[in-house]
Design a protein around this nucleic acid. Structure first.
Length: 669
RNA sequence: GCGCCAGUAGCUCAGUUGGAUAGAGCGCCGGCCUUCUAAGCCGGAUGUCGGGGGUUCGAGUCCCUCCUGGCGUGCCA
């Protein structure tokens, strides 16, 4: 934790030395970690940067800098290595002293950050792609909170889109059901699975007779205008499905502060307000001809470009300045209904505190624990004790990369209505999809055609009903984990085994969804997802369980001593153990101490996988240490004290790391 | 066509705003349970970092170009 302050001391010292010797101001001085611990704890390559301007060999410069630097608090010695690295060896005892003493770096004044994630269409069961979204989003939220940010988590409910309309069409026109019928079915349970199957059948229903697409359009309009029977049925379905999703996500410990409903954006006239502003600012125009005739459209001639159309000559000069229909995006359809993009512009504006409208809020769902509550927007009677939702300084939208084009248009809308600065406060936190290997498709019983066979992966399709449901995956994991737990611990009570198995399943799936870099497609494979060995959640959990077991065995507290008044004792202990062991102890502690900088890197790069890599590396290091050095049977007091301290520090930081990923630590495994 | 992403060991992937001998997991071979849990540890084999140019003390990383694959470019989201 203090490593931030130490790093600052080092860079400042180097900056001063470089200034004094070469009269050069270096703005970024980057510390890297040497490949081998024998090369020190922090390395600087500044000598290479200076070589040209100083017209000297890097090695000479590094040597000059090393002697100029002299004594630095917290640094034991400085070495010049290789072609010109400056390698710093830290004062280990002092570092540990600061680490456990809680000399916390001053936290930035916290600003409100809104993270929007999950956002599943409320018309079917959640699938593995949604698990990736939720795991990424929730990890990011936990990291932000760890760093002291004030975070509000929103799960946007698109209850007025085509997807819900399709299921309404399915119930009304395929099943010929009334709302009462649907309510009876819902009461029997697994409503999200029922809708999953029905939704898949709707596609076929349209394909049999394309004229039936009129039903979808009419249904959508009826929902938007609040007409019976479509509107109340849609509301019932969306509400019931959202409750299913909340339970599914609670299984992996993902929760939300607020559910903003798209229907409330319409009912409370957020959209009407944004629509008026978009027209007033000239951001959208009525298309008077061509395929988009009668629609309100936004011109998007320069996709993804931040500056408005650089006015370079178009590739098709034969079109005499006629706007290209491919360069316009429909915001309001010719029948007057608004697309998702339009509604999202209004929603983004509200999140940024830039729309002069406010929702009402009501409690939506209580979790079993006392303070677990999810709020919801409402167009009805609001609750008086609702928290002040909205008005984010920064907004992250966790949405898959296939929607990058739409997100770009939403952001253009925000820039039009507010400013470029407002747009920059909103981030599209984009990630790649979870696809299925052809093998997985076959295992699910879906026929794989010859042309799909050669593909690396196939896209999940809710429309076709092709996908692995989140609850099914979790149940498979729990089943496998339970079998393992029972075979390893036959004497456990069934309830106990069940709790442990659930924790393992949760750890496995959360780690699986986080460990791969977010912009890489995950080709889902059951065998890989169900693995409990090596680079997996259970491996990480196992290390924590072992560490806790040691401390329990020797009757030591889980935390290192909170007042490190024993710097001298630690220093002596380091001197009294063999050098190789001292290095191993130090390597474990120093690695664990990187947690904070890893957390900052996660936010800076919007990449949660960094925590996963960090935790894996730390677990591997601990497991090696665990096998090499024992505590319970050790009689040498210096060795014992140092090893104990290392395990305590490791466990403290490691538990934070697992918690950032929402990976629970079972009591035993 | 245009835009975005990806190409690293047999497979799945890391690789920290350019840095020291390119790393993990799985799989394979060989060891380790009377000492804190073997979901583990130790050792071994495995590389045209897609191809070609360029930038420089130094390139898997930056630039150009080509190839391959995926996604986007809907009055779906």
């Amino acid at each position: 934790m203090t490593e931030g302050g130490l790093a600052l001391r080092l860079t400042e010292a180097i900056r001063k030395a470089v200034h004094d010797l070469y009269a050069v101001e270096l703005d970024d001085i980057i510390s890297t970690r040497p490949k081998k611990t024998s090369l020190g704890d922090a390395a600087f390559a500044v000598a290479f940067d200076l070589a040209r301007s100083a017209k000297m060999a890097p090695r000479k410069i590094a040597e000059a800098l090393a002697s100029e630097l002299g004594e630095i608090e917290g640094v034991q010695r400085i070495e010049v290595a290789g072609p010109g690295y400056l390698n710093f060896f830290l004062d280990r005892a002092a570092f540990i002293d600061g680490l456990i003493g809680g000399e916390t770096a001053p936290k930035a004044p916290s600003t409100k950050v809104i993270v929007e994630h999950t956002n599943i269409n409320p018309n079917k069961a959640a699938h593995i792609g949604h698990l990736r979204n939720a795991a990424l989003g929730d990890t990011f939220v936990r990291v932000l909170r760890f760093l002291g940010e004030d975070v509000e988590v929103q799960n946007y409910i698109d209850d007025t889109g085509v997807q819900v309309a399709d299921v309404v069409v399915g119930f009304l026109h395929i099943e010929n059901m009334t709302q009462k019928d649907v309510e009876r079915i819902e009461a029997t349970g697994r409503f999200d699975y029922t809708c999953w199957d029905l939704y898949a059948r709707v596609s076929g229903f349209y394909e049999e007779d394309r004229a039936r697409l009129e039903l979808r359009a009419a249904t959508l309009k009826a929902i938007e205008e609040g007409n019976a029977p479509e509107a109340p049925l849609a509301a019932f379905i969306a509400n019931a499905i959202v409750r299913c999703h909340l339970l599914t996500m609670d299984r992996i410990d993902v929760r939300y502060d607020l559910l903003p409903w798209e229907s409330d954006i319409l009912k409370l006239r957020f959209w009407d307000r944004a629509y008026q502003l978009l027209k007033d600012k000239g951001a959208i125009r009525l298309s008077t001809g061509g395929k988009n005739e009668g629609c309100w459209v936004m011109d998007v001639g320069n996709p993804s470009g931040k500056s408005p159309a650089n006015a370079t000559q178009p590739d098709t000069p034969d079109e005499n300045n006629e706007p290209d229909e491919n360069d316009e995006k429909v915001i309001v359809r010719s029948n007057g209904t608004v697309t998702y993009v339009g509604k999202d512009i209004a929603y983004q504006m509200w999140k940024l505190g830039l729309l002069d409208r406010q929702f009402g809020f009501v409690r939506f769902h209580d979790y079993t624990d006392p303070d677990g509550v999810v709020w919801s927007t409402t167009a009805g009677e609001p609750s008086a004790d609702a928290p002040p939702f909205g008005r984010g300084e920064r907004v992250y939208n966790v949405i898959d990369t296939r929607q990058a084009y739409l997100q770009d248009i939403v952001q253009r809308g925000v820039a039009h209505l507010a400013s470029e600065q407002a747009r920059d406060r909103s981030h599209h936190f984009s990630y790649e999809m979870v696809a299925l290997t052809p093998q997985t498709c076959r295992e699910l019983g879906f026929p794989v055609g010859p042309e799909d066979e050669s593909k690396p992966y196939l896209e999940v399709s809710g429309r076709k009903g092709l996908g692995v449901k989140a609850d099914d995956l979790l149940s498979s994991l729990e089943e496998k984990a339970l079998a393992e737990v029972e075979s390893r611990n036959p004497s456990l009570e069934p309830a106990e085994s069940g709790d442990i198995a659930n924790a393992i399943a949760r750890g496995a799936v959360r780690y699986f969804m986080i460990k791969t870099t977010k912009n890489r497609v995950i080709a889902f494979d059951f065998a890989e997802a169900l693995s409990f060995d090596g680079d997996s959640g259970p491996y990480l959990q196992y290390a924590a369980v072992r560490a806790a077991k040691i401390l329990q065995k020797v009757d030591a507290p889980l935390e290192p001593p909170d007042r490190p008044d024993e710097t001298q004792a630690v220093r002596r202990a380091f001197e009294n153990v063999p050098e190789a062991e001292a290095d191993d102890v130090w390597a474990l502690i120093f690695a664990a101490a990187e947690l904070s900088s890893v957390a900052r890197a996660v936010v800076r790069t919007e990449e949660p996988a960094h925590v996963a890599r960090f935790a894996l590396g730390l677990a591997q290091r601990f497991n090696g240490f665990y096998h090499k050095y024992h505590i319970a049977g050790e009689e040498d007091p210096s060795k014992r004290a140092l090893r104990l301290l290392a395990v305590q520090i490791f466990l403290r930081e490691y538990r934070f790391a697992l918690n950032l990923m929402g990976i629970p630590i079972p009591r035993q495994m």
